[in-house]
Amino acid sequence: MVNINDFAVESWMDAHENNCKYNLAETCCASISVDQLRDLSETNDGKVFDTSKALTYGAIRGSADLRSNLARLYSAKVATPLPPDNILTTPGAIQANYLTTYALVGAGDHVICHYPTYQSLYEVPKQMGAEVDLWKATPENEWTPAIEGLEALIKPNTKLIIINNPNNPTGAVLNKSFLQKVVDLASEKNIILLADEVYRPIFHSISPLDKEFPPSLLSMGYKNVIVTGSMSKAYSLAGIRIGWIASRNPEIIETIASARHYTTISVSHLDEQVAAFALSPATVHGLLARNIQLAKTNMALLEKFALKNEDECEWVKPVAGTTAFIKFHREGKPVDSVDFCKKLLEKTGVMFTPGTCFGEEWRGYVRVGFVNHTEMIEQGLNEATKFVRKNLDDVDLAA
């Protein structure tokens, strides 16, 4: 039987997200309805999906409209366009990451994973029988791991290097020159690179004009790259459960497509129609403008919160994505993040995520999702400030 460890962050969300008043654990940009999506679009007919179509399995590898829209987005500002055939759709990015690992990794393989990050990125390779090493980032280096550390971890049997950019939970990015070093190392050893880019392109604190602005790993010239994404985080449509896998290597796509037959067969073509509408030229720019502005507005609120509570917390300001990783302490000693989050929820209705959901060494940290509706974020942070001032002394310290 496969040894499956508890998926800590999803267990926490499952237990608490429907019982809170202020959900500051949510990692999606504030979700929208189909009607709101239609209102964001410049299209005239406003037709999001075709209700006259028979509800068949649909296109096995993904609808032509959706894959074409994704290919167009990945082909922007690159010399070689990405063919739509180099994209597979999946039920969310979590399935995209799972399927990629399922298809490519097994016993005897070695995997290196950027850390801290979403737990499934390193747990699933273990379930497949691979040896996994964590490539650790630290707040002292603004959550950028050392390239020398990656080089030291590589073994003769290293099959896959996994990165998460922008990063969950820290909101940090691996910048362009750093990504080039990763690509150079991987290409030298012919190692496949998997980039979970689910929080791309919510860049709220770095300009696309910045020379170090991080491109998609797919655009950096290395053939053995896979990127995954979804409609959930940056595009506010978690409820349609649409994700994707893209690579410039058709052999990788064929291998994953073959494995895919054993899992999902296809994705709901009603959901794919909504996703295709959202990613169409008439809609995607308005949708992303809404979400990037929301991230910028709410980031200002989070900065004020950190400043108000600077004697009790510390952080590295996020650069992108929807999350921040904040360390709380009492007289210099880190609090127990689980006890902190439970008591915060009980006293105020505010939901944060304990840092221990991302590893036991993050016991003093909490993850804050700050790109939900602004009014709710502001009220929730105000309640959290009251809790820190009145109740922090009642919170256990980390062991």
Score class of each variant (00 low, 15 high):
Trp135Asn: 07
Thr100Trp: 07
Lys223Arg: 12
Asp184Lys: 12
Glu10Ser: 07
Ala259Trp: 13
Tyr102His: 15
Asn97Gly: 14
Met376Phe: 05
Thr27Ser: 14
Ala15Phe: 04
Val132Tyr: 00
Gly92Leu: 01
Asp39Arg: 10
Val338Ser: 09
Cys341Gly: 12
Leu153Ser: 05
Val335Thr: 00
Asn19Val: 08
Tyr365His: 15
His204Gly: 01
Ala278Glu: 06
Gln36Ala: 05
Ile256Asn: 11
Ala172Pro: 05
Ile202His: 02
Thr89Arg: 04
Phe387Tyr: 12
Ala295Val: 01
Trp315Arg: 07
Glu188Asn: 13
Lys296Pro: 05
Thr374Glu: 15
Ser177Pro: 00
Asn3Asp: 03
Leu160His: 08
Gly243Asn: 07
Pro215Tyr: 06
Asp65Phe: 09
Gln36Lys: 06
Gly46Glu: 08
Thr138Asp: 12
Leu24Gly: 05
Gln180Asp: 10
Arg248Pro: 04
Asp196Lys: 05
Ala289Thr: 15
Gly380Arg: 10
Asp65Tyr: 05
Glu378Cys: 04
Glu360Val: 09
Glu26Leu: 12
Cys313Asp: 04
Leu294Trp: 01
Asp109Val: 04
Gly332Leu: 12
Leu392His: 06
Leu381Tyr: 10
Arg389Ala: 00
His373Trp: 11
Leu150Asp: 13
Ser63Gly: 13
Thr263Cys: 12
Leu179Pro: 02
Ser232Thr: 13
Ala146Thr: 12
Ile253Asn: 12
Asn5Ala: 14
Gln379Pro: 00
Val124Lys: 01
Ala398Gln: 05
Lys233Arg: 13
Thr263Asn: 10
Trp12Asp: 07
Glu142Gly: 07
Ile253Ser: 10
Ile163Asp: 02
Thr89Lys: 07
Glu10Pro: 01
Lys181Ser: 13
Val182Gly: 12
Ile242Cys: 03
Ala257Lys: 00
Lys233Glu: 14
Ser187Ala: 15
Ser11Cys: 09
Val173Gln: 03
Lys126Thr: 14
Pro208Val: 01
Gln273Gly: 07
Arg248Leu: 05
Glu360Ala: 10
Ile163Glu: 04
Lys390Asn: 10
Leu270Ile: 15
Glu360Cys: 07
Asn175Cys: 01
Ser120Glu: 11
Leu66Pro: 01
Asn3Trp: 01
Asn309Arg: 03
Asn19Gln: 08
Val316Tyr: 01
Thr283Val: 07
Met299Trp: 13
Asp45Gly: 03
Gln180Glu: 15
Ala289Pro: 01
Ile226Met: 00
Leu70Ile: 14
Ile226Trp: 00
Pro201Glu: 07
Met351Thr: 01
Asn175Val: 00
Ile94Met: 13
His269Leu: 11
Phe277Trp: 04
Leu209Lys: 14
Val225Leu: 03
Val395His: 05
Glu142Gln: 09
Arg363Leu: 03
Ser219Met: 04
Arg389Thr: 00
Val173Ala: 04
Ile265Trp: 11
Leu307Phe: 06
Glu254Met: 08
Ser232His: 11
Phe305Ala: 03
Thr56Ala: 13
Pro84His: 06
Pro281Trp: 06
Ala8Glu: 14
Trp362Pro: 02
Ala384Trp: 03
Glu123Lys: 06
Ser268His: 06
Gly286Lys: 09
Gly108Cys: 11
Asp196Ile: 06
Leu82Ala: 06
Arg330Lys: 15
Thr101Phe: 09
Ala278Pro: 10
Tyr118Arg: 11
Leu302Met: 10
Gly355Met: 05
Gly349Glu: 09
Ser33Trp: 04
Asn5Gln: 14
Lys308Gln: 10
Lys126Glu: 15
Phe277Cys: 03
